[in-house]
C-alpha cells in the first residue's frame, strides 16, 4: 500500500465519521422541542422542553420583565411588568409553532421543534 493510498483512506475515513456525526446530530435535534426566549428581538435563552422540565425564570428587556413557568411540558407567564397583562391572560402553550408575546415588554417565548404535524405559523 502506497503513501497516497493511505492518505486517501484516512481522508475518506475522516469524512465518513464527520458525515455520520452530522447526520446523527441533525436527526436528534429534530426530535426535540425547545423553548426559545427572545428579548428585544434577540435570543437570550433556549430551554429544552419535555414533560419533566420544571423551570421558573425571569426575562428582562429594555422595557421591563416577565416571569415564566415551565411545567408538565407546557409554558406560561406568571408575572409581568406590563400594563395590560395580556401575556399572562394568554395562558399555557405547549405545541411547536405556538408562542406567547408580551408586546409592551418586547419579550417573546416560542416553542420550536420538528414534529410530524408541526404548524408553520399562527394567524391571529
Amino acid at each position: 500500500m502506497e503513501k497516497g493510498d493511505k492518505l486517501l483512506a484516512l481522508i475518506l475515513v475522516v469524512i465518513f465519521i464527520f458525515a455520520i456525526g452530522q447526520y446523527t446530530f441533525v436527526s436528534i435535534s429534530k426530535v426535540k422541542r425547545t423553548i426559545i426566549i427572545r428579548s428585544d428581538g434577540e435570543i437570550v435563552e433556549q430551554i429544552p422542553l419535555n414533560e419533566t422540565t420544571e423551570v421558573i425564570t425571569t426575562i428582562k428587556s429594555k422595557e421591563g420583565a416577565v416571569t415564566m413557568q415551565v411545567k408538565n411540558g407546557k409554558v406560561h407567564i406568571i408575572e409581568s411588568t406590563c400594563h395590560d397583562k395580556l401575556c399572562i391572560k394568554q395562558g399555557w402553550i405547549s405545541k411547536t409553532g405556538e408562542s406567547i408575546v408580551c408586546l409592551p415588554n418586547r419579550i417573546s417565548i416560542s416553542i420550536t421543534g420538528e414534529e410530524k404535524n408541526e404548524i408553520d405559523s399562527i394567524t391571529y
Binding site: 395562558g91 402553550i93 405547549s94 405545541k95 405556538e98 408541526e118 404548524i119 408553520d120 405559523s121 399562527i122
Partner: peptide, 14 residues
C-alpha cells in the same frame, strides 16, 4: 403545503 394554525378565539391554542 404550509400549515397555518388559526387562533382559537376563546381558548389557548388553535
Amino acid at each position: 403545503q404550509w400549515k397555518i394554525g388559526i387562533k382559537n378565539p376563546r381558548e389557548d391554542g388553535i
